[in-house]
Nucleic acid binder design. Structure first.
Lengths: 224, 224
DNA sequence: ATATATTTTTAGACGAGCCTAATAATTATG
DNA sequence: CATAATTATTAGGCTCGTCTAAAAATATAT
């Protein structure tokens, strides 16, 4: 079943905003004022739209309660993000835009309506898995390849990731992890990469940044 | 000077519609009802917009009078057409859409705002001169390469063109032209091209179609 | 646990684009 | 040239997405 009702530009942006907020803050729920801030609009405006999105069964919402995307709302949000990221790849790889210039234009391109267009664009680009900022590109079925396990060494500068496992389960490595307070679920942000030896500077929650070796980074599995 | 005031999606469509109508009907002027028909909207709606476009000095208009694009209005209309046609080339050449499928998607893409995007897209496509339907692509300065003289042999099937001159001015050729009633300004439509010998079937105004040789087609200069 | 602060919703208004129905201007015709 | 037919404009209303200001609900803090 294709999405029967086409969404407006604005509705798509609300779904995307809600999705981003739930991702950013961990919780699947978010609030009126956060959405307003995200979209540079006013809370009263958001309330109006929330009612509309709830009518269309894209969010679960009752007044004064928290906001959560429904299955179909989440699906649609992810498809918009998929389009956004594929266009970013196009702009960067094919038109040589800097990675910092692509976002603004992709904000417009993401709303072009045509399934076929995105299917063909994806093929044209060689089925990229990440956009120029290192964010993963969801599949056509709207699934974020959740199992995209990569090593810490593969995380781009300035990107955050979450620890999901190790490659090397030797006692020394695990002990070292414990010592620096890294475990499953720990959020890590990559601050710097030294190309000389592959070592990197990373920051941990409520810790000052630390430096880790290439060997360390190669053995820590993370998701973005 | 860049166009200070950005136009809305809708305003751009009105300019484009007015421009197309003036092209189609020869005259630089058009009417409320023609615009309404072109845009599948109602005359009263058009009147509202005409006032707005006149305020912005994009059209010359006084109520109950004919409508004409100003210099800047025409410029903007041509730039929208430029974007439309470049996107059509992209869709056809790079994404392998059929020439009949590209229009609808290009209708959306033509409104993406970014000078730089179009500059780079044009370069990426190798500075094409015609879109997949054979319509010419205006330059970045908004000039329709009016002097795009090509030979009849280069006209695509189903496209119409206008005779502007000859390559071979021998008496025999000119006499032959006179005989089939082709002169400067004659409108010709290409019906068929025989790849075997390069001959083509063409139709002339109020005449049945005739067949002409490759040599003939190579020596007749036309514009699209 | 009650008063205060914060967040959210309602009420009312506005511009952009669109509509229908009624009116006015222009053009065509007898 | 006066009247009929056509075309264009006004008047008033609708939806969408936005706003401000005021009221209501929830959350916080003493």
């Amino acid at each position: 079943m294709k999405s029967a009702t086409l969404l407006s530009f604005t509705e798509e942006n609300y779904l995307k905003a809600i999705y981003s907020l739930t991702q950013k803050h961990g919780s699947p729920e978010t609030s009126t004022s956060h959405i307003a801030e995200q979209l540079s609009t006013k809370p009263s405006t958001v309330t109006d739209m929330l009612r509309k999105l709830a009518d269309k069964k894209l969010i679960a919402y009752e007044k004064y309660r928290k906001i959560e995307l429904t299955k179909s709302g989440k699906q649609l949000a992810i498809l918009v993000i998929r389009k956004h990221r594929l266009w970013e790849v196009f702009l960067h790889e094919k038109l040589q835009f800097g990675w910092d210039e692509v976002h603004e234009i992709a904000e417009q391109l993401e709303h072009i309506q045509s399934e076929e267009l995105i299917t063909r664009l994806e093929r044209f680009l060689g089925f990229p898995k990440f956009d120029p900022h290192g964010d993963p590109i969801p599949s056509a079925t709207g699934e974020l390849q959740a199992g995209q396990r990569i090593t810490l060494a593969d995380v781009q500068i300035n990107k955050s990731c979450e620890v999901v496992g190790v490659n090397d389960s030797s006692a020394v490595f695990l002990k070292y992890l414990q010592q620096v307070d890294i475990g499953i679920g720990t959020k890590i942000k990559v601050l710097e990469k030294i190309s000389f030896d592959g070592s990197m500077a990373i920051s941990l929650p409520r810790k000052v940044s630390i430096s880790v070796s290439k060997k360390f980074a190669d053995n820590l599995m993370v998701i973005l």
